[in-house]
Nucleic acid binder design. Structure first.
Lengths: 106, 106
DNA sequence: TGCTTACTTGGTAATATAGCCAAATAGCCA
DNA sequence: TGGCTATTTGGCTATATTACCAAGTAAGCA
């Protein structure tokens, strides 16, 4: 693998890494249904506000969401609609994994 | 977020985490073009065989690839064709991030 | 101005991940 | 059998990630 390819895969990995956490996946799902402020997400997730804020900043740095401050609240929006297809793929993997577990038990 | 949802997002995250590394993304790309043995991948990646083997086992545990031992070699194959669409989505994000960087410089 | 709510940032401890070396295992062939 | 090649596993250190608390910033309002 040459240097340029390495950089390409590193850049991909950085974005995927931003998605690789249950709380952040939940956020992406929620934001897929419409913008939410930090306080709304904090309520749903039941973690410290600072924790939620940091997860959001990871998604934002990766370019997956956008923020919009209105008054004292900050609203976040999903920038990337194509993620839905991706999650479909992940669900396929999960279904298949379960299927294989079941085969083992037969 | 209730316990069941939490488990769902955790399971998704575990699979995504398996993809969240440049070397493993390279492997997935390579295996997408056809099966390869550990030694071939080791040559391409130029890391210790043990490192390559461990990356492959991460992908395998996630259910993304399958192994097939023939003689002294172990051949790995991609199990999940839908990943190609996913990478397309990630490339979109990367392109958009660059675009926004450029806007900033205008 | 001073208070309150909403959010971000810095610091820290616990945990997870990555890479290498060394050692173990497995199949092939002389 | 003994040796060779291919691969996996265990152990270790370095680094990254996560979550919380505490402190800082920012906007609205009495």
């Amino acid at each position: 693998m040459n240097k340029k390819d390495m950089a390409k895969y590193q850049a991909r990995a950085d974005i995927i890494k931003a998605l690789a956490h249950p709380t952040r996946l939940f956020m992406v799902d929620q934001l897929g249904e419409g913008e939410k402020c930090v306080c709304e997400l904090t309520d749903m997730i039941k973690a410290d506000t600072s924790t939620v804020s940091k997860h959001l900043s990871v998604l934002k740095s990766a370019g997956l969401i956008r923020d919009d401050k209105r008054g004292t609240s900050v609203y976040y929006q999903l920038k990337v609609p194509c993620l839905k297809g991706f999650f479909g793929c992940i669900e396929n993997v999960m279904r298949n994994n379960v299927k294989e577990q079941m085969e083992l038990l037969k």
